[in-house]
Write a protein that binds this DNA or RNA. Structure first.
Length: 300
DNA sequence: AATGCGTGGAC
DNA sequence: TGTCCAAGCAT
């Protein structure tokens, strides 16, 4: 789309209100952008900030990470959550080192082929790190466009073809402008057009927004299902892995048994951690974070 | 396509 | 205080 009435207010707002985040600074490398995007998958900015700095200080390049062990990546990941991301980022560093001469690829397709990099992250890195023109469709952008364009409070559960078409159609023609637009819409969603308590009075799209014009109607339809957490395998996995993260070397199984009372669930959770490559079983009932690349890095 | 996958802060 | 939420991905 050459020009949309949405562009100017969003770009002007961003110029004034954008947060000074380290992965947006001019000295941020494509590797830094990639690391930030993976960390930001389901983890809030405030918790990513220190983890990002420590990660890049330790592993300033993909090849530096690839030279370490997957277990160290999991340990350094700390409490960001969803530790399989650490494993996939480690595997991505190997792929980048071996197939891309150590440079984070610039093409969407090459990025998309990396482990742990889906549609959103591939578009985000291509756009933010390399200034390309892509529809960057994350939960923030989906929410903003659903409200502004469709006049509906929340986007559908799963991303639809129509949403992709809308986002694509709204992209400015010039790649640099499209990249700025992408990050700017995301920022509006993160700071103003938030999920629970949108600040419409401060919104650059106040006038244009169909949802605001309609009087901010509530969401109709079936109530949104949330996954429970207390007592789940996920919680159990989290406790087990925390023991290993915070221990040097191998840990006797008794240490793991101590953090979860139900033995059936505990064994199941431990099995899935091993299957995921997050935990390495050793002889005589000992366990540790993984040390070998074979189970983690895709071959071919 | 619906699920499983961590963690902690905000209210 | 329990519920909701936070720049998704893989299967």
């Amino acid at each position: 789309m050459p020009i949309s009435p949405l562009h100017a207010p969003v770009l002007a707002w961003y110029a004034e209100h954008a947060r000074d985040l380290p992965w947006r600074r001019p000295d941020a490398t494509p590797w830094g952008v990639l690391v930030s995007e993976v960390m930001l998958q389901q983890t809030p900015v405030n918790r990513v900030l220190p983890a990002y700095a420590e990660w890049l200080e330790r592993w300033p390049t993909p090849s530096a990470l690839a030279a370490d062990t997957p277990g160290e990546a999991v340990r350094q990941w700390g409490r960001l959550g969803y530790p399989r991301r650490a494993l996939r980022l480690y595997a991505a560093a190997h792929t980048i080192t071996e197939r891309h001469d150590g440079a984070v690829p610039a093409s969407y397709d090459d990025l998309r082929a990396l482990p742990g990099i889906g549609d959103y992250t591939a578009a985000a890195v291509a756009s933010f790190a390399y200034g390309q023109r892509h529809a960057v469709l994350d939960t923030n952008v989906r929410r903003v466009l659903t409200r502004v364009v469709d006049g509906v409070r929340y986007p559908p559960t799963a991303t639809t073809a129509r949403e992709r078409r809308t986002a694509q159609d709204l992209l400015p023609d010039a790649p640099a402008t499209a990249a700025r637009w992408a990050v700017a819409v995301m920022e509006v969603g993160a700071l103003v057009c938030t999920a629970a308590a949108p600040r419409c009075d401060s919104c650059p799209l106040y006038r244009e927004c169909a949802w605001r014009q309609a009087g901010r109607p509530d969401h109709d339809g079936p109530p949104r299902r949330r996954q429970s957490y207390e007592g789940t395998d996920r919680q159990c996995r989290g406790r087990l892995l925390r023991v290993l993260r915070e221990s040097d070397g191998a840990v006797p199984k008794a240490r793991l048994d101590a953090v979860w009372p139900d033995p059936v669930q505990r064994e199941r959770a431990l099995d899935t951690l091993v299957a995921d490559g997050l935990v390495e079983p050793l002889a005589r009932g000992r366990y540790r974070l993984p040390t070998g690349v074979a189970a983690v890095v895709p071959s071919g």
